[in-house]
Nucleic acid binder design. Sequence first.
RNA 1: GUCCCCAUCGUCUAGCCAGGUCCAGGACUCCACCCUUUCAAGGUGGCAACACGGGUUCGAAUCCCGUUGGGGACACCA
Length: 476
Amino acid sequence: MTETMRVRFAPSPTGFLHVGGARTAIYNDLLARGADGVFILRIEDTDRERSDEAMTRQIREALAWLGVEWNEGPHLQSERLARHRERVEELAAAGHAYRAFETPEELEALRRAAEAEGEKFRYRESASPLSSEEVERRRSSGAPYVVRFRMPVESVAIDDMVRGLVDYPPDAMDDFVLLRSDGSPTYHLSVVVDDIDMGVTHVLRGEDHLPNTPKHIGLFRAFAAAEPRFGHLPLILGPDRKRLSKRTGATSVEEFRAQGILPQALYNFLALLGWNPGDEREVMTRAELIEAFTAERLNDSPAVFDAEKLSWMNAQYLSSLPLEEVLHHLEPFLEPAGLAGVDRERLAVAVDLHRSRPRTLVELAESVAPYFADGIEWNRETCARFLAEEGLADDLEELARRYATVEPFAKEPLEELLRAQAEELGQKAGYLIHPLRMALTGVKAGPPVFDVVEVAGRELATSRLAAFAAWLRAGV
RNA sequence: GUCCCCAUCGUCUAGCCAGGUCCAGGACUCCACCCUUUCAAGGUGGCAACACGGGUUCGAAUCCCGUUGGGGACACCA
């Protein structure tokens, strides 16, 4: 019986959920689900100033929308302060921690001095540490102090799930702070205490945490706790090959959501940004991803975020997902497109007809709007060729008259009728087809016209044809 | 600056650990054609890469060293 895998995703609630964080969450999701493990959500909100409840909710909603499932939490790190302090006391009692009285100014001076020597300043307990009497004396005199970890002076090797063996030399670490002078625990302490208490077995996080790992390992050992397996994911870069930032485009899950990206598409796309199944599949459901996922195939070089490919992926889902699902996700985009109270059954038909074209839900809503609008606008530029066609207005009016009585109002008879009329006129069918589409939708391209006419319905089709004919005449 | 990580088409990547089957495969983008009196979707084809220099080897995209380039981290922030 092997132990249950327990992973955690531990964002700090300092804003919207970043796609980098989202991807980390996705890989943890994949890892846990594939092993029948437990996914713990923990909010690292120890930096009180920058955190608030709204942001925490924001993160939960973004994860839920994305389809990442957590089994435990969210735990709030801020609610575990007492536990964190208690653990520092244990550390101190066992000789793994000590008080240090340097002021921030003194530390700054030491740092500058080291730098002047071309060295990197690392705080280590001085060769002649303060006697316990001296510590007591300073403390009772009210001098502020921090509690530092007595980091063993030895190299630390990390067997990283994605990078293999990574070595840190002894002087890469220092006696980092555990408790600030106001008594609050630092990040390093909190994470390790929480990971131990929550029984975390695998830590899969961003590469920016790699240099912290030897420190964390030092703490795990001091606590005599089992070390989890670590894995460090390369960062996501922007088109400028720099860390993804708002300057080069959308970066948060909620922005993509607002742009009309489907959660399935974002999940799939992010999962493929730094991992692949080893075969040539790309469009994969979460279930398929879970089935195929192994940490061994995680990439170790950073990836540039390609918004273009995300768009393509989104289009794939837009046209292949069950219609009901698309409709469900389209709901929030209805109102902005003026489709708020529209008949859902007709909407479903129109969406199904159009959904293989747009790349986003925003575009999908817009493309379907003409079926429900009172009237539409025609653009003189795009209609130039129709405007120049003499007699076209008359012919379209004739078409409208015939469409007013055709039975049934369905695409086959609709097409036959139009072709017959074109033949009478000695014209090709395209002569009527193109202006017909323009008349109904206001755009020059779209689904097959007769489908469009059928979905539009007799009343809308005939009246819009008449209105377009009138507009053409007025334009000439 | 110091420490750590990384390096295949413009981008995401397969191949690298177990060297030959790779004049390097797939996908996005772009182009052409097929389908379609439109536009998508779909299909077919095309353009496009092993960063550089040394080794090791009969043979290197694959192993080793170096260079260059990119990224990350160096707090009483997380």
